[in-house]
Computed example of a mutant assay.
Amino acid sequence: MGVADGRLEMLFVNPDHREHGVGKQLLEHGIAHHNVSELTVNEQNPQAIEFYQHMGFVTYRRTEQDEEGGPYPLLYMRLQR
């Protein structure tokens, strides 16, 4: 997990350890101790989108390209409190 200025920059969980609460624990720690309230996720990653929605994040913006101009739509999400 990487966090900068209240924004989750990255969260990776080894596929062998998914579905065991590791991602939830990491994100809850980020929210509680690093003020995580925003993140960006690739729209082509429905598993991640579903996870973040389950954790209380909602989409507030969508782009057609990633931040480097690549053909990867991004969803910008905020923690709904």
Results as ranks from 00 to 15, higher is better:
Gly2Ala: 14
Gly2Asp: 08
Val3Gly: 08
Ala4His: 03
Gly6Pro: 00
Arg7His: 15
Arg7Met: 12
Leu8Thr: 12
Leu8Asn: 05
Glu9Ala: 13
Glu9Arg: 13
Glu9Tyr: 04
Glu9Asp: 14
Met10Lys: 10
Met10Tyr: 03
Leu11Cys: 14
Phe12Asp: 09
Phe12Tyr: 14
Val13Phe: 05
Val13Pro: 04
Asn14Gln: 10
Pro15Val: 10
Asp16Met: 08
Asp16Ala: 14
Asp16Val: 02
Asp16Glu: 14
Asp16Gln: 12
Glu19Gln: 15
His20Met: 05
Gly21Tyr: 06
Gly21Asp: 13
Gly21His: 07
Gly21Gln: 05
Gly23Ser: 04
Gln25Glu: 09
Leu26Arg: 03
Leu26Asp: 03
Leu27Cys: 04
His29Asn: 11
His29Thr: 11
His29Trp: 09
His29Cys: 11
Gly30Met: 06
Ala32Thr: 10
His33Ile: 01
His34Met: 08
Val36His: 04
Val36Pro: 05
Leu39Ser: 06
Leu39Cys: 01
Asn42Phe: 03
Glu43Ser: 15
Asn45Ser: 08
Ile49Arg: 14
Glu50Gln: 05
Phe51Asn: 09
Tyr52Met: 08
Gln53Asn: 13
Gln53Met: 03
His54Val: 01
Met55Pro: 01
Met55Arg: 06
Met55Phe: 03
Gly56Cys: 09
Phe57Tyr: 05
Val58Ala: 13
Thr59Trp: 00
Arg61Met: 09
Thr63Met: 08
Gln65Leu: 12
Asp66Val: 12
Gly69Val: 11
Gly69Trp: 08
Pro71Arg: 13
Pro71Asn: 15
Pro73Leu: 06
Leu75Thr: 03
Leu75Ala: 01
Tyr76Phe: 15
Tyr76Ala: 07
Met77Asn: 07
Met77Lys: 04
Arg78Trp: 00
Leu79Asn: 06
Gln80Cys: 10
Gln80Leu: 10
Arg81Thr: 13
Arg81Glu: 10
Arg81Ile: 06
